[in-house]
Amino acid sequence: MLLLILKRIGLGLITLFIVSLITFVGVEVLPGDACTTYLEREAYGAALDACIKRLGLDVPAYERYLDWASNVARGDFGYSLSGEMPINEVLGPRVKNSLVLASVSILIGIPLAIVLGIITALWRDKLPDIMISTITIFSMTIPEFISATLLILIVAIWLGWLPGIVIIPSDATFYELLSNIILPVVAISMIMTAHMARMVRSSVIQVMASDYVQMAILKGVPYWKMVFRHVLPNALLPAINVVALTIAWLLGGVVVTEVVFNYPGLGRLVIESISNRDLPVVQALAIILASIYVGINLIADLMTLMLNPRLKSLQIRK
């Protein structure tokens, strides 16, 4: 068991290492270096030399990678080009804002998805399922920027209930954030809920068709007792992994949603730093987002291990 956990963590670290290599090599191989892309037309003479000196671009690439990687491992991402301030200071408030947005969306999304998934599975092909499934399919296929734009158009412009665009500085307090994030949270959790509800639905349907549930029905176990004792624990377990993958996949959607609502989070920073050609920040963001992805998957793996008694005993016997 412990060995398995360690192995998973090791694999995650290897993945992160490869990600750091890919982003570093990618930035290196693509035409232009950080200085020429950032300075654009002013990239000549003293300005270019100074920039190259400051970033240490005159050192061979592998040395720079080692230097950068060891700093990153200690949690220091270096300096951004445009703001000329430590990337950690740029990232701090953005990470907090995105975390608030993501965790509120997840807190609303997961319970809602489980309830909707169970309802649609138990009333399969009946009216509640058809209605909820149609809505979930719509909201998971339509791109985030469309549902977000429609939300602004309908709720903020036509109905005038809520402000359509977030206009708070990136260092706003938690309470200032909360009053502003209703629409972004709805936009993100709508898609997330839809994806997860579909997973829960198919998982519950699979378990309902299994032999032991049939056996329970034949034994005369009351319907709701059967659902809660026999079906749900077995159905929700495999859904955890899929839910984790879905959350990680939605990171891209969060970027778009933050841009639509002008929300000062990590996602908007991605767009800003790429528009400004601030490659050190882009590299830092790549590592951070990849770590989130790897981390979520790791947690899901471990949770499945912990919650599944069969896997546990299998490991102990080994």
Binding site: T15, L16, I18, I22, L251, G252, I274, A286, L289, A290
Partner: peptide
Amino acid sequence: RVVDAFLSIPWILAMLLIVSL
């Protein structure tokens, strides 16, 4: 392993990087 690593870079970041360069 390499494919997994590519999967863990959010697609939007990778695409934006390529397109902007």
